[in-house]
Design a protein around this nucleic acid. Structure first.
Length: 754
DNA sequence: TGTGAAATAATTTTT
DNA sequence: TTATTTCACA
């Protein structure tokens, strides 16, 4: 293995193969290179057998890339080496032995939508309102508990004092029960159950311990407690565990990632060898200076300072636009300018934002300016209705115990099996502690269901039965075609398409769209059959469903020359010659919830996100903000993001008129803080609006205030003196000296000009 | 069972 | 603004 292309630090990280190693790899410091070289080094120089190596990543993309790069480095094949995501690694382990903890080995995997359906069912059964216990919220609480390895029982004990959480614990209990009965696991279970399996079956753990003599974990800052325990269990004994991560790039705390895992690695393992990779091969020094300065404001971090030998570089440009429309135009203009002047191709550029909603005005501007773009995020392929329907059929074929999927498709396409009938069946299933499928099988013995409904159900059962019998004989792609054919799903869509060709063109197009998606799904199945994925032993329906469940992106590498639009979160791990960081405004970035919570850790996560955004840029970085922004139909006056204020002066260049000042100041923060604390506190947005309105209404009096303009100094009976900072229709936004910023409807307001 | 008006809520999302 | 969900009614 040739290690000459590595810098001294990287080289140390590769050569230190024994015992725990912590690699703190800053953005763009070549961590993938280190990781792949290390694997190659282990095999070639240390004679480690590929099967003794386990490399874990978070995304399929990272796993695939890693395997590819390892294979490029060495001659021997990597078939026996596990390079996979946490989740697929766990599935593999569970498929072998999950029966030892009472689950069916051919379990299916539930996604977020299935979770919602299941929780709704649980709520119904427990007679709880889904208004009080919002399924999404309940799921995130359950998910949080699972990330921390808390069983329903434990969760209940821990929250014994809290009525609401005690109820949630009941939901959690039932939810787990139902998952098991359906032979289903959710994403969190994949990790949790693997840990459980290891804890209760030492022989299984011993097997994997013996097998994985060298363990590597990528993006360690994103691991949850459960993942941490999993890795720890496997590494116990030999302790050859090498984790790579960057605490400054931990941006998934809200998803259960526990930054302490990386911060406290040295405490959790003995004699940890720590390496910092601080040389950055991606960005100019100016960009790194900016990133370093911003992130230095965080307290909770390991000290690290990126440097580059690409000295200097273009300064960071800051643009202050009137509104989000102008902001988008600025971006479009700048891209054209650099495209023409410097000959930059469109795929040199990325537009990054905090929230997906910000993409719209940019899209509009790009369409006007004829700039080709790709937008990332939004509705995922596998989340589309027709795909979910089809997958539900496949799941039922694979695992008829899957009630959630059965219920989804029993009347799709329409078979005149009504809600009432389904309810009756469900009751019976609950009563007999059986799956819905088994109730359906002997539906004829059920007395309170009409003969007609019975006939319809038997038709359905026949279709599923037929599909189940041909399951083994057919390759998945053919099976998929058969599903679409036998169920009449495809026919229905074709009919809708052709029937509405004349008048309801949208409907026709929509149907065609769905047909296209289904065809796409078939080609995904074909691809699956032809692929040479080392992680898949057998190409059957079960492994196909697993692959589908554990994959979210279907998009192939976009070869075309287009500008990329995405959230900062999705940009992690990517790099672009020119980056636009948009919406650099208080309340948007950092997002208001992070400010509102006033919790340092939330704010620090926002700052890390900013750090991630900045470090995506290789050569040029633009940051933009607006004076007023319309988001979700509401216009607000913007205050510059504190992250802009944190940038070092010598790195930045203001694009807007020198006379203008950025709308920020410490005083403004204080106003905003007061405002958010006092009026937003624990209240929802609606509550807050009501509160302000009510207060204003109290002082209702006829006054002509047409003279009020932007900048008017006014006096309000309750709120005291203030300045009008925006006028939109009859909505006034006023910055009160004492009370902070408020939105007031002038129809109901008493104001004096001063 | 389907339609359309009305109400409502709207970070981020690797699997 | 907009997408989604709910609810009333045919």
């Amino acid at each position: 293995m040739n290690l000459d292309t590595l810098n001294p630090e990287q080289r140390k990280a590769v050569e230190h193969t024994q015992g725990p190693v912590l690699i703190l790899a800053g953005a763009g410091s070549g961590k993938t290179k280190v990781l792949t070289s290390r694997i190659a080094y282990l095999m070639e120089d240390k004679g480690v057998h590929p099967s003794n190596i386990l490399a874990i990543t978070f995304t399929n993309k990272a796993a695939n890339e890693m395997r590819e790069r390892v294979e490029k480095n060495i001659d021997s094949d990597t078939k026996d080496m596990w390079i996979s995501t946490f989740h697929s690694c766990c599935v593999r382990i569970l498929r072998k032995d999950i029966n030892k903890i009472g689950y069916n080995r051919s379990f299916v995997i539930y996604d977020a939508a299935d979770q919602v359906t299941l929780v709704k069912d649980c709520l119904k059964e427990l007679n709880l309102s889904d208004k009080v216990f919002e399924p999404k919220v309940v799921i995130s609480i359950i998910s949080g508990a699972k990330d921390k390895l808390q069983s329903p029982k434990e969760f209940k004990q821990r929250n014994a004092g809290d009525n609401r959480l005690t109820k949630v614990a009941d939901i959690y209990t039932l939810y787990q029960d139902r998952l098991k009965r359906n032979s289903a696991l959710d994403f969190d279970d994949l990790i949790l159950k693997t840990v459980e399996l290891f804890r209760t079956n030492p022989d299984v753990l011993d097997y994997y311990r013996g097998r994985f003599k060298y363990i590597m974990v990528d993006e360690y800052q994103d691991t949850s407690k459960a993942q941490y325990e999993l890795v720890k269990a496997l590494a116990k004994g030999h302790q050859n565990i090498c984790v790579v991560g960057d605490d400054d790039q931990s941006i998934y705390g809200w998803r259960g990632a526990d930054i302490r895992n990386i911060l406290e690695f040295e405490r959790d393992y003995d004699d940890v060898f720590v390496i910092k990779l601080e040389q950055n091969y991606r960005s100019t020094q100016v960009i790194l200076d900016a990133a370093n300065t911003v992130i230095a404001n965080n307290i909770e971090r390991k000290r690290k300072k990126l440097w580059s030998d690409k000295k200097d570089g273009e300064s960071i440009k800051i643009e202050l636009a009137e509104s989000e429309v102008y902001e988008a135009d600025f971006i479009a203009d700048t891209i054209w300018r650099l495209h023409k002047r410097d000959g930059r191709p469109f795929n040199d550029f990325a537009i990054l934002y905090r929230a997906n909603a910000q993409a719209r005005p940019v899209e509009d501007a790009f369409n006007r300016a004829q700039i080709p773009y790709n937008i990332y995020g939004g509705t995922k392929f596998y989340e589309r209705k027709e795909i979910k329907d089809l997958v539900a059929y496949l799941r039922v074929i694979q695992n008829p115990q899957d009630d959630i999927s059965i219920k989804r498709i029993i009347n799709v396409p329409k078979r005149s099996i009504g809600l009432r009938t389904i309810e009756k069946i469900e009751d019976r299933a609950n009563l007999k502690q059986e799956s819905i499928y088994s109730v359906l099988l002997d539906i004829d013995t059920n007395s309170d269901i009409s003969t007609k409904a019975k006939g319809n159900i038997n038709d359905f059962i026949d279709i599923v039965g037929t599909l189940r019998t041909i399951k083994e004989a057919y390759p998945v792609s053919k099976l998929v075609e058969k599903v679409l054919d036998l169920t009449g799903y495809m026919d229905e869509l074709v009919e809708i398409r052709d029937k509405n060709k004349e008048d309801a063109i949208t409907k026709s197009e929509e149907a065609q769209d769905r047909i296209d998606n289904l065809m796409e799904f078939i080609s995904i199945a074909v691809e699956f059959e032809n692929s040479t994925d080392e992680n898949i032993e057998e190409k059957n329906l079960e492994t196909f469903l697993t692959t589908v469940a554990l994959t979210s992106d279907t998009s192939e590498e976009e070869q075309e020359d287009r500008v990329s639009l995405m959230t900062i979160h999705t940009s992690k791990g990517l790099e672009f010659p020119v980056v636009f960081l948009t919406g650099m405004e208080e309340g948007l970035f950092p997002i208001s919830r992070a400010i509102k919570s006033m919790s340092d850790s939330d704010l620090e996560e926002e700052r890390r996100l900013c750090y991630v955004g900045i470090t995506r840029a290789k050569q040029e970085l633009f940051m933009s903000l607006t004076r007023r922004r319309t988001l979700y139909g509401k216009t607000n006056v913007s205050i510059a993001s504190r992250f802009i204020e944190e940038l070092p002066d010598e790195c930045i260049e203001k694009m807007y008129s020198k006379k203008q000042e950025l709308p920020y100041s410490k005083a403004n923060y204080n106003l905003l803080d007061k405002y958010t604390k006092k009026y937003m506190g624990s209240m929802s947005k609606t509550d807050m609006a009501n509160k302000v309105n009510a207060t204003v209404k109290d002082s209702k009096k006829e006054t002509d205030i047409d003279d009020i303009k932007l900048g008017s100094k006014v006096y309000h009976k309750k709120f005291g003196p203030g300045t009008v900072v925006s006028v939109m229709g009859s909505d006034l936004t006023i910055a009160f000296e004492q009370q902070g910023i408020k939105k007031i409807n002038k129809e109901y307001t008493t104001l004096d000009l001063i």
